[in-house]
């Protein structure tokens, strides 16, 4: 058992080999501080979810903190994406979904009747597994959110928001000369960063990422991971990932899901080095999943 732990630590230490930028120095510092010192952003209590007759989530309790990355890991079909989609009420779009429990954003119940999911989704942005830019120009892709929410009045304001979002998403230098070209013409990694730019264009408080790198090559993945490090300075990020290395690299807290239940949640280091639950132990060491 001790041996396995060392193996896992070794994996965590491999970071610099894969990352393009230097390893997360700030993360180490934060590692010293307890993450809980950050402000509590979202809190899910006793969340149950059914697709028709089939129950997909069982009494999930999870706290997500501001200015940090929370990773959701677990084998396929364990409900981590389903849970993520509860956080911005994207499951509302699907027929036959029933949710009980309580999810709060800044202490406010997001399933309360007075909350419009449309407004909620402007505060809680989402990036999907497969890059899904609209078949519009790069500029229009980023301007989409501000346009529908009426954030900008003049063209100059739009240009400013587009430039700022693309810069934050690390894409500005690559596309600034071809903003009118279709967003679908970019490479996969660029498309995903375009989708991140689109998501942050409306200044969300929370960014949900559903396996954002699973369709990307290692270099594009590294770029997005670096980006997440930057973005989390003003955002609460929740990421679903199948890559335990990625969870170890980018997140401060990790939650392990199994068969629709939240098995264990703790500091990332603890989950990967000293998990309490045997199932977590087996999963992070590659025994199953």
């Amino acid at each position: 058992m001790v041996e396995r732990d060392y193996a896992m630590e070794a994996k965590v230490e491999e970071r610099p080999a894969i990352r393009v930028e230097a390893p997360a120095v700030p993360k180490k510092k934060e590692g010293d501080l307890p993450v809980e010192q950050n402000e509590l952003k979202m809190k899910a209590s006793d969340v149950n979810l059914w697709y028709g007759e089939k129950q997909a989530l069982f009494d999930v309790n999870l706290e997500m903190f501001d200015q940090s990355v929370t990773a959701l890991i677990g084998p396929s079909g364990c409900g981590k994406s389903t849970f993520l989609r509860c956080l911005d009420r994207m499951n509302d779009v699907i027929d036959g979904v029933r949710i009980t429990g309580d999810i709060r954003l800044d202490g406010e119940d997001i399933y309360a009747p007075r909350v419009d999911p449309v407004q909620l989704r402007a505060r809680v942005g989402m990036v999907f597994q497969k890059p899904n830019p609209f078949p519009k120009s790069i500029f229009e892709n980023v301007a989409y959110g501000p346009r529908i929410h009426g954030l900008c009045r003049s063209k100059a304001e739009f240009e400013e928001i587009v430039e700022r979002s693309l810069t934050r998403a690390g894409l500005w230098e690559e596309v600034k000369d071809r903003l009118q070209e279709p967003g679908t013409g970019l490479s996969g990694g660029q498309q995903q960063r375009l989708c991140i730019a689109r998501a942050i264009s409306v200044n969300p408080e929370v960014l949900l990422m559903d396996e954002p790198c699973s369709a990307l090559d290692p270099i594009a993945t590294a770029k997005i991971e670096t980006l997440m490090d930057d973005l989390k300075k003003n955002l609460c990020i929740v990421i679903v990932t199948h890559s335990m290395q990625q969870a170890a690299r980018v997140s401060q807290r990790t939650a392990f899901f199994h068969l629709g239940k939240l098995v264990e949640v703790d500091d990332t280091t603890t989950i990967f080095t000293n998990p309490t639950d045997q199932r977590t132990q087996d999963y992070v060491t590659g025994r199953f999943g």
Binding site: N132, F134, G145, C195
Partner: peptide
């Protein structure tokens, strides 16, 4: 039009009407 387009638009906080007129119909 792929489901991902709809998801992308809803996730941006677009209403159904906005999604139809701004994303689905142009596509």
């Amino acid at each position: 039009v792929p489901r991902a387009m709809r998801d992308g638009s809803y996730a941006m906080g677009a209403t159904k009407g906005e999604t139809i007129t701004k994303v689905l119909l142009p596509a």
